[in-house]
Computed example of a mutant assay.
Amino acid sequence: MDTPARLTARGVATRERILLAAARLMYVRGVGATLLDDVLATSGTSKSQLYRHFPDRQALIEGVVDLQCAQILARERLDLARVRSFAGLQRWATALVENNALQNGAYGCVLGSMTSELAGQSERARLTIKATFDEWVDLIERALGRLRDNDELRPDADTPNIAIGLMAALQGGYVLARTAHTITPMRTALDLALGHVHQHLRSTTT
């Protein structure tokens, strides 16, 4: 995420405080239901401070999209880099389910939520979210590649499509969990997707 040039340390802190407050509100309430006055109250900043860093609401929304995408990719790069076995892939999926369970599945994936609200309104936001999803899928595919390199996954496994299937199960699970306010559908969707991966292991006794 780019920071405006020549900001003082205090200015950088103010900008980050505004972004974090806006990101939290937009995640819980939705982008459309989050008012600038809400952001001001939550961040403890003035209108002049907000408009100095974000000239309009659209600029603030785009800043939030950049922040959320960067945070998700930082987490997934770290977590998926650890996946070198099918058991590791299961641990990765379980961690996502358990993290969502902290909210009883109420809010879902921030990327999915932003996509539903912004894809038809902001081309810049859509492209940023698309690039994030593309890299996330690529990270999953690389993890599957390590399973193949370690002779756990069969050489003929279609890792690009399996990675897309895992992402589709994950995002669909988020949506169903958000609707039901329980992570059970998310766990079920990922278990089924992992079952498909299991079918492509060299030995199905794992």
Rank of each mutant, 00 (worst) to 15 (best):
Y27F: 06
G44F: 08
L194M: 04
D79K: 13
T34C: 04
R57N: 02
R15M: 14
L153S: 08
R6F: 12
A74H: 11
E98M: 13
T188F: 04
I162C: 03
G105R: 07
E117P: 10
G172E: 04
V64W: 09
L50V: 05
Q49D: 07
A119N: 13
S85R: 06
L89V: 02
M26F: 10
R24V: 09
L102T: 12
H181Y: 04
A163D: 11
M26P: 13
G105V: 02
T45N: 12
R15A: 12
L170H: 12
P160L: 07
A125L: 05
N161C: 04
A59K: 10
K130V: 14
I162P: 01
L166E: 01
P55V: 06
D79L: 15
A33Y: 08
A189I: 00
I140N: 02
N150D: 09
R178E: 09
Y174I: 06
G165Y: 04
L127N: 05
T45R: 15
V65M: 10
L89D: 06
R84F: 01
L73R: 11
I183A: 05
T206C: 03
L144Q: 04
T205L: 08
I129L: 15
L102S: 03
R29H: 14
D37R: 13
Y107H: 14
R187L: 09
D56H: 09
G11N: 06
A106Y: 00
R178G: 15
S48N: 12
C109K: 05
G195R: 08
E141G: 08
I164N: 03
L170I: 05
N99C: 01
A13R: 15
P4D: 05
A119Q: 05
S203P: 00
V175P: 00
A169L: 08
Q58G: 10
V28P: 00
I129N: 11
S48P: 02
P185G: 05
Y51M: 10
S43I: 10
R154I: 12
L50T: 03
D149R: 13
R187Q: 11
D151K: 11
A189E: 02
E152R: 08
T94L: 15
R148E: 06
L111R: 01
A193Q: 04
S85P: 05
R154K: 11
L194R: 07
T206Y: 06
G30H: 09
L102V: 10
Y174H: 15
G30S: 13
T8L: 02
S116F: 06
P55N: 06
V64S: 11
A33G: 13
S116W: 08
G195K: 04
T204D: 01
T45Y: 07
G88P: 07
R52Q: 07
Q49K: 09
G145H: 08
H196F: 10
G32T: 10
S116L: 12
R187P: 03
K47T: 13
A81K: 02
A22H: 09
T34H: 10
A157N: 04
A119T: 00
L201W: 02
L78T: 11
K47I: 02
E62C: 03
R124D: 02
Y107D: 00
S48G: 14
R75V: 03
A23V: 07
D138T: 09
T34K: 12
V97L: 04
I162F: 03
L192M: 07
R15K: 13
L20C: 09
N99R: 15
A21K: 15
H196W: 04
L166K: 11
